[in-house]
Computed example of a mutant assay.
Amino acid sequence: MKDQDIQEGNDNNEGRSRRSFLTKGLNIALVTAVTGTAYLAGCKGAEEDEIGPPEDLMREHGILNRVLLIYDHFLRMLAANEPVAPQLITASAGIIRTFIEEYHEKQEEDFLFPRFEKAHQLTDLVQVLRAQHQQGRLITGQLLQLGKQPQVSADGDKQRLSSLIAAFIHMYRPHEAREDTVLFPALRKIISKQEFDSLGEDFEKREHQLFGEGGFELFVDKVAGIEQQLGIYDLAQFTPRIQA
Score class of each variant (00 low, 15 high):
residue 197 D to E: 10
residue 212 G to A: 09
residue 207 E to N: 06
residue 196 F to P: 02
residue 114 P to R: 03
residue 192 S to N: 12
residue 219 F to E: 04
residue 66 R to T: 00
residue 191 I to Q: 03
residue 128 V to H: 07
residue 224 A to T: 09
residue 53 P to T: 09
residue 38 A to F: 15
residue 177 A to W: 05
residue 121 Q to S: 14
residue 205 K to D: 08
residue 81 N to W: 04
residue 87 Q to K: 12
residue 67 V to E: 02
residue 241 R to P: 00
residue 188 R to V: 15
residue 222 K to R: 14
residue 232 I to K: 03
residue 119 A to W: 04
residue 92 S to K: 02
residue 138 L to M: 08
residue 20 S to D: 11
residue 184 F to D: 01
residue 146 L to Y: 04
residue 90 T to F: 02
residue 219 F to G: 01
residue 79 A to C: 06
residue 238 F to R: 13
residue 130 R to I: 11
residue 209 Q to P: 02
residue 166 A to P: 06
residue 237 Q to Y: 05
residue 23 T to S: 15
residue 178 R to S: 09
residue 137 R to A: 06
residue 233 Y to D: 05
residue 210 L to F: 07
residue 31 V to I: 14
residue 226 I to C: 03
residue 91 A to I: 06
residue 4 Q to E: 10
residue 182 V to D: 06
residue 225 G to Y: 00
residue 81 N to M: 07
residue 201 E to I: 13
residue 188 R to C: 11
residue 222 K to S: 07
residue 21 F to K: 13
residue 124 D to I: 00
residue 85 A to M: 09
residue 228 Q to S: 08
residue 43 C to S: 04
residue 226 I to L: 05
residue 100 I to V: 12
residue 118 K to V: 10
residue 139 I to D: 04
residue 57 L to G: 02
residue 228 Q to P: 02
residue 78 L to T: 03
residue 206 R to C: 12
residue 70 I to Q: 02
residue 155 D to I: 14
residue 203 F to S: 01
residue 67 V to Q: 01
residue 93 A to Q: 00
residue 36 G to Y: 07
residue 81 N to D: 10
residue 138 L to C: 09
residue 131 A to Y: 06
residue 118 K to E: 11
residue 14 E to M: 14
residue 232 I to N: 03
residue 166 A to L: 10
residue 80 A to F: 02
residue 125 L to Q: 06
residue 1 M to Q: 13
residue 46 A to Y: 14
residue 164 L to H: 01
residue 50 E to S: 09
residue 130 R to W: 13
residue 132 Q to W: 05
residue 135 Q to G: 07
residue 204 E to D: 13
residue 210 L to Y: 08
residue 159 Q to F: 08
residue 107 Q to R: 09
residue 143 L to K: 01
residue 33 A to R: 15
residue 23 T to V: 14
residue 72 D to F: 01
residue 23 T to Q: 14
residue 224 A to W: 00
residue 12 N to D: 15
residue 210 L to C: 07
residue 32 T to Q: 12
residue 98 T to W: 00
residue 103 Y to Q: 06
residue 209 Q to I: 15
residue 154 A to K: 13
residue 64 L to C: 06
residue 184 F to Q: 01
residue 238 F to D: 00
residue 191 I to R: 07
residue 236 A to P: 01
residue 111 F to Q: 05
residue 212 G to C: 11
residue 146 L to A: 01
residue 226 I to Y: 02
residue 230 L to D: 02
residue 171 M to C: 11
residue 233 Y to P: 05
residue 171 M to S: 11
residue 199 L to A: 03
residue 225 G to F: 00
residue 137 R to P: 03
residue 110 D to F: 07
residue 242 I to S: 08
residue 223 V to Y: 01
residue 11 D to F: 13
residue 12 N to T: 12
residue 121 Q to E: 12
residue 233 Y to C: 11
residue 66 R to C: 02
residue 81 N to C: 00
residue 19 R to N: 08
residue 189 K to S: 15
residue 214 G to C: 06
residue 21 F to H: 12
residue 117 E to G: 08
residue 29 A to W: 05
residue 162 S to T: 06
residue 187 L to R: 01
